[in-house]
Design a protein around this nucleic acid. Structure first.
Lengths: 171, 171
DNA sequence: CAAGAGAGATTGAGAGTTCAAGTACTGGAG
DNA sequence: CTCCAGTACTTGAACTCTCAATCTCTCTTG
């Protein structure tokens, strides 16, 4: 049975094939479910959404537990605006503190407080466990490796671009 | 050099290995960047976030372009509450209309309007293009296949569970 | 058939995110 | 030194999402 010819004329979009649609659908579903799952887990056990938790982790891994706002935003792949709001909230919780940058009066450091570090220490095991259960425990080593490669490629493709706008790294 | 033995005692959490951390990091980054990218693309070109677009697509694919609220929520992997708010917004735009279910007075159908269908027709090419550019064009056929399998597994693992709470399918 | 458990959907308030605009400062060109 | 384009960060408003009710209706059970 011949269906319409696959002519990729200039304005005829290249629709997703049936297989591609399945892949895409699976991706969307898993990504949605996973993010929701982790958000719930962390909201319940640590009192913050997944993104916020990630910010604390980045800070904990940084020298002197501090990072410039822009840098932290870049690492976390979020906008500066979003980060400002997030840090404001975390500051209210006493988990992060802001500090002026001595060498650049415009600059701010986000600094993980001892209290913030303690929250991480207490909740990290539960979180790792959730990630394992949802992802790693279900995949073969080959699949894990493959997933890493794939996501690295995708992330790279959407990354930095040259500077510009409010989001040097986004678009 | 011997580091601490890898004893998985009951309360000692199984931390992620270095490789696992890299995979997880890549996943988070790619997922964040991708969702943001598509949200921007669709907000700009179609005037709605990615999730809302997905809702219209599901409706368009359904018989008589309609779906019960709960069913639509289940397909889209979101809570009923979220869906209610979303449909309210889409209704304001004139892209969706609600209809009572004749056989169950509690039930509601979300129905795609002609206007809604037209929005999809107009914006689908650009969206498919964005998805291709960000994902499919960068992956080999094997990687695409692999990604599909992986995400299917993950989604399945977080899926339904038995009935209960507000989210029969989410935990 | 009355009672009550449970399903289907919505609501409102609080929390988080986006977008566009604003403030404060830096660094290089003239 | 002065300008000023560009960088660093914040802000407020509009929008979206979550969570805990709430409301209506269905269905089972005694």
């Amino acid at each position: 049975m011949n269906t319409a010819p696959i002519s990729h004329s200039a304005d005829e979009p290249r629709w997703l094939t049936a297989e591609e649609q399945l892949v895409w659908r699976s991706y969307i579903e898993a990504a949605t479910l996973l993010e929701d799952h982790l958000d719930r887990q962390l909201q319940r056990d640590a009192g913050m959404p997944h993104v916020y938790y990630g910010l604390l982790v980045k800070l904990a891994e940084s020298p002197r537990r501090r990072l410039r706002m822009t840098e932290l935003a870049r690492y976390a792949k979020i906008t500066r605006s979003r980060l400002s709001h997030a840090i404001a909230r975390l500051e209210k919780n006493g988990w992060v503190r802001r500090e002026d940058c001595p060498s650049d009066k415009r600059g701010q450091f986000a600094v993980l407080t001892d209290e913030g570090h303690e929250v991480l220490r207490r909740t990290a095991p539960g979180h790792v466990n959730a990630v394992r259960q949802a992802l790693f425990d279900r995949l073969t080593p080959e699949q894990q490796k493959s997933l890493g490669e794939i996501m690295r490629i995708v992330a790279e493709g959407l990354q930095p671009r040259e500077a510009g706008a409010d989001l040097p790294w986004l678009r």
